[in-house]
């Protein structure tokens, strides 16, 4: 219902991506066996660290799809929702901090329903780049001024960038 990606793309893209990355890794492995093996170890460790969070996100997408119908999304965030829907999503996503890898599957759900592209873009940009949750940590390391200026500028520029992204994607007609 939400995912209507071409079967071609779902198989072909990952195959190509996996192949290219594997080729790069193989070159590194040939040059330095130790480094190659260490790369795999670090990669697996990173993924394992994220697994619980990833499962929660996947579960939330499932819950989201049974309780939120495409018609509801269309009503609250669709073309007629105007600036309100856009601002709501932008505020919500700048409060949260979601690592890019996990924000994308959620954004994809929005992208493949009738929600405007600019809303998808603002969700993706604001939720990865600006975060009120991590503000204490940022202040601790980099100072109040740095953190406030960065998050303030990020929020404003994210809105501009997302509107432009929506405009250009419509212009080029980018489906998946």
């Amino acid at each position: 219902m939400y995912t209507n990606i071409d079967s071609m793309n779902t198989i072909l893209f990952p195959l190509i991506i996996n192949f290219i990355v594997f080729a790069v890794w193989f070159v590194i492995f040939l040059k330095d066996k130790k480094k190659g093996i260490q790369a795999i170890k670090i990669g697996i460790k990173n993924i394992l660290e994220m697994t619980p969070f990833l499962l929660i996100i996947v579960g939330l997408i499932g819950i989201f799809s049974i309780y939120v119908s495409p018609a509801m999304l269309e009503t609250y965030l669709g073309g007629n929702s105007g600036i309100g829907g856009f601002l709501f999503v932008s505020l919500l996503s700048s409060v949260m901090q979601i690592p890019g890898i996990m924000a994308v599957p959620i954004a994809s759900t929005l992208y493949h329903s009738d929600v405007p592209v600019s809303i998808t873009a603002v969700f993706l940009s604001a939720s990865t780049m600006s975060s009120v949750f991590t503000l204490p940590l940022e202040i601790k390391y980099l100072g109040k001024k740095f953190a406030y200026i960065r998050i303030g500028l990020t929020y404003v520029l994210c809105i501009v960038v997302s509107l432009l992204t929506g405009y250009f994607v419509h212009l080029i007609g980018g489906g998946v």
């Binding site: 996996n18 290219i20 170890k41 670090i42 990669g43 993924i47």
Partner: peptide, 14 residues
């Protein structure tokens, strides 16, 4: 794309 994710994060941290 999990294989690519694992390898890529590993490659860049090395």
């Amino acid at each position: 794309i999990l294989p690519a994710i694992i390898l890529l994060t590993g490659i860049f941290s090395v």
